[in-house]
Nucleic acid binder design. Structure first.
Lengths: 153, 153
DNA sequence: TATTGTTATACTCTATAACTATA
DNA sequence: TATAGTTATAGAGTATAACAATA
């Protein structure tokens, strides 16, 4: 009989524990922004647009790590909610530009406040030293793996 | 004119950075186990069953933080793949028990090896000290927020 | 009446690819 | 031909609720 193959416990993996914590943080945030009528992806979309006058779908997709198709779907939903507007580009008739409506623009600070509250609930109880370490270690992984930390430039 | 409301940058949030890293880890793992024909959720399902002779859907759902409905769907897919079997309970005719087939049981070590490899790729390049800190800090959050780190007892 | 598990429904996210209209 | 954006399709995860059988 062959010896039993080793099977390390799930919870011995940092990746597993990371997923548990990250899921809890995202789920908690999702629950709260949902009351404002938006999803997490919609929030990130609006938050990125907030830093720009306007942005075309393709660069937005790159920034958010999504496909163009996903951006179209997200954008359409936000246009329906009157939080984002789509405009034609006079120079290139294929191109579109996306920007926040005034309603969308005024919603961003409210959502930002919710994000800050969620952040405080999960990470506030840690020591400042642990928060600093967590941030540094995650940053190191982002760097080592070349992950895109959204606003690239 | 009111002063502009403060909007903290996305990347200033630990929760956001956590999501980026966690998504990258999970996505990378998903890509690899997919070659073995299973999803991440299916792997966790099988990994939990691996520690038991058999388990009913309800306790399994609690362990995995999923609803009974989700478990049914997952289980049905795994039964189709002949990795899991469903059996009736002679004592309580409502009850079902889920367990790994021999094929399922022999697949677990292979998947565990993939999980170990993924773990090494993402966290191996860190210093041992950083790995320890990351584990401790995540554990602290799990503890503070009362998150279920799957195997509860 | 309460519980076990299944089924139905619905929505988000993700991914791929076909498609259109321009360039 | 290549590019910008849309549309279509499909799978996976999640959540809620209705349901049948059994306790």
């Amino acid at each position: 009989m062959p010896p039993p193959a080793p099977v390390s416990p799930l919870e011995s993996h940092l990746g597993y524990r990371l997923r548990i914590v990250s899921n809890a943080v995202s789920r908690s945030f999702a629950r709260t922004v949902e009351e404002e009528g938006v999803t997490v992806a919609e929030w990130v979309f609006m938050r990125v647009l907030h830093d720009f006058e306007s942005l075309a779908p393709t660069p937005l997709a790159e920034r958010m790590g999504m496909t163009k198709g996903a951006i179209t779907k997200l954008a359409s939903r936000l246009v329906e909610k009157k939080l984002v507007k789509r405009e034609a580009n006079p120079d290139d008739k294929r191109a579109q530009t996306l920007s926040l409506t005034s309603r969308g623009r005024s919603l961003v600070p409210q959502l930002a406040k919710i994000a800050d509250g969620n952040e405080a609930a999960f990470f506030g109880p840690l020591t400042a030293r642990d928060r600093g370490n967590l941030n540094r270690i995650l940053g190191r992984i982002v760097e080592l793996r070349g992950l895109k930390d959204v606003p690239t430039d």
